[in-house]
Nucleic acid binder design. Structure first.
Lengths: 147, 147
DNA sequence: TATGAAAAGTAAACAGG
DNA sequence: CCTGTTTACTTTTCATA
């Protein structure tokens, strides 16, 4: 990726509502030039979208957990993500190399909801679960480019 | 959190560049009313910011890993997040309840860079590491409110 | 891939209920 | 906490290099 594009991506990764005017100032390009570059970055899929960063505690979902899962029957065809996609509490689903096959990140309102969710996950995807409760988040979703 | 606010947060969590005009249409409020509510949500810290969602593969960081860490010396004061904060490859840092003390999410360009990063983490924070490489991401950073 | 300029749309601030 | 209005700014498109 070109230097100017990386700069634009870094800027938008740390403030997704920066105006094209600001981006232009920070990159030395004209407003139209930045505009075109951002559009191209989106077309190429480098920028996949824009999101508000929500404080889940303040939003009523104070409990985050990481759940590693492995299928009961390792010979079954693996459509686990498809089986879990409908559970909106699962905010991330990674296929991983390791003892388990997938790691999920979930957000729930209470231990009780976590308990229910685990049961749902186990029966929906025919898996065993190993749950790690998040106690606190030092940081999250930081830009890997070093701002 | 009130219903209208939850709706606004959900909408912005799925498209962080929605205009106040669009938010007003989708909530039935006036443009000024949504404007004020969004400002208040930011002041209260419910909305912590806005970010571009970057495809890290396309952006040259194709390798993601989850690293669980535990201190060599459990009696030492725990300033691990502070010791790791400067490593920009660490995009998330969770304190967790479990065998290990922290789980990190890292993004790097290559296995070689992961190797270097692991060495840096071990010596910077005086910890042992257990690394789980992410093979693919089914989804990530989804809204937990069910859009 | 860049630029500047024009038209349409939006944000931000404000007065008032 | 809401509404409508105003002003300034921003987005988007276009012609052009």
């Amino acid at each position: 990726m070109e230097d100017l594009d990386r700069r634009i991506v870094t800027l938008l990764a740390s403030d997704g509502r920066l105006s094209f005017t600001d981006l232009a100032r920070d990159t030395g390009l004209s407003v139209s030039a930045v505009h075109q570059r951002v559009r191209r970055l989106q077309e190429r899929g480098v920028i996949k979208g824009f999101r508000a960063v929500v404080d889940h505690e303040a939003a009523g979902l104070p409990l985050t957990a990481l759940i590693s899962i492995a299928p009961f029957d390792a010979s079954a065809p693996d459509d686990i993500p498809d089986r879990l996609r409908g559970l909106h509490q699962i905010v991330a689903c990674y296929s991983v190399a390791g003892e388990e096959n997938y790691v999920l990140k979930v957000r729930v309102a209470s231990p009780r909801e976590l308990e229910d969710l685990l049961a749902t996950i186990r029966s929906a995807a025919a898996v065993t679960t190993r749950t790690t409760v998040v106690l606190s988040t030092a940081w999250e979703d930081r830009s890997p480019f070093g701002d």
